[in-house]
Measured scan of single mutants.
Amino acid sequence: MSIQHFRVALIPFFAAFCLPVFAHPETLVKVKDAEDQLGARVGYIELDLNSGKILESFRPEERFPMMSTFKVLLCGAVLSRVDAGQEQLGRRIHYSQNDLVEYSPVTEKHLTDGMTVRELCSAAITMSDNTAANLLLTTIGGPKELTAFLHNMGDHVTRLDRWEPELNEAIPNDERDTTMPAAMATTLRKLLTGELLTLASRQQLIDWMEADKVAGPLLRSALPAGWFIADKSGAGERGSRGIIAALGPDGKPSRIVVIYTTGSQATMDERNRQIAEIGASLIKHW
């Protein structure tokens, strides 16, 4: 067993022997301040990774656009098919120029040779490549099948209805392509620590998230040296922004954090800054 596999296998073990965790309302004060600064709703939840206990939450059962955070769930569904012998990570998928959609920095470079399922998941999570996500959605049967996968996990809230990039439209009061912070946090925890996926697939999923290259201005910008984070960000229309993450000190994750916002007129930089400040408060009061 590799060191990384050992780390993920012992996530519940280490967490069980940690000192009790206590909620700190100071972080919620910052979440509410972010709402004021952005002029928009902000949803927040913080779960203990081992027990699933909610440590703090704000608007945990209000719907927010998922945006690209759905790509972690998508690759979880792909990995479940791999575990069941219905898919192979090494299978190569070929596609054409007509398949390319807006923001496809990886797939646009491989029109000639195609990409493997493993490479597509890596591109979808680490670079948020939209064509990679659409190609992977095709392998599982489309958005409705991802929703069905989530329902089978016990998540009857999260739903995907459309493809990239239309799913980022974020129309107010439109339930399409949305989740709730509580539902997303619980589902992410199941994917990373539950028995739904094999140990190898859980490790692969967290490795992809740990290698995320496009979430630097968010929670990662607030992390002290030595902290662990595996995350996936999302951005959408109407001032929408979000991030889902597993993080913790001492090089291992111990909490799940989900943050979503929508309806702001603020710039992307300002949305990023507010999420980073929430992260800084979380870490300060850990």
Rank of each mutant, 00 (worst) to 15 (best):
A246F: 12
R273M: 11
G194I: 06
H94T: 12
P165M: 08
A148N: 14
H285Y: 11
L136I: 10
E87R: 04
V82P: 02
A245E: 01
V257M: 06
K32P: 02
A185Y: 00
I45M: 10
A40R: 03
I244K: 01
R81E: 06
D33A: 13
Q265A: 14
N98D: 15
L218S: 01
L196V: 15
M209V: 01
T147C: 09
L135H: 04
W163Y: 12
V257A: 07
T267M: 10
V214K: 06
L160N: 06
A230W: 03
G239P: 02
S264K: 06
M127N: 08
G248M: 02
A276K: 13
A34C: 09
P253M: 15
L192F: 13
R63D: 03
C121I: 05
E26W: 09
I125F: 01
S57G: 11
A185M: 02
L28V: 15
G141I: 04
G279H: 01
A77K: 11
Q97N: 12
G76K: 00
C75R: 00
L137C: 04
L146K: 03
I259H: 01
N168Y: 04
S281F: 09
T261D: 08
L196T: 14
M180L: 09
S254Q: 14
G194K: 10
W227S: 00
P181V: 08
N50R: 13
L191T: 06
D174R: 03
T193P: 02
E26M: 14
L192Q: 04
E102P: 15
T126Y: 00
L79V: 06
E164W: 00
E61Y: 15
G114Q: 03
S96F: 12
I171V: 15
G279N: 04
M115K: 05
D33N: 11
R159D: 02
R81I: 07
E237G: 14
V78S: 02
E195F: 07
M268T: 09
V42E: 03
I283C: 08
L218K: 02
H24M: 10
V82M: 07
A77Q: 11
V78I: 15
T262C: 09
S68K: 01
R92Y: 11
A124L: 03
M209I: 01
N272D: 11
D231F: 01
K71I: 01
M209E: 02
L120D: 02
M209A: 03
E270K: 14
T186Y: 14
T116G: 04
A246D: 03
N173D: 13
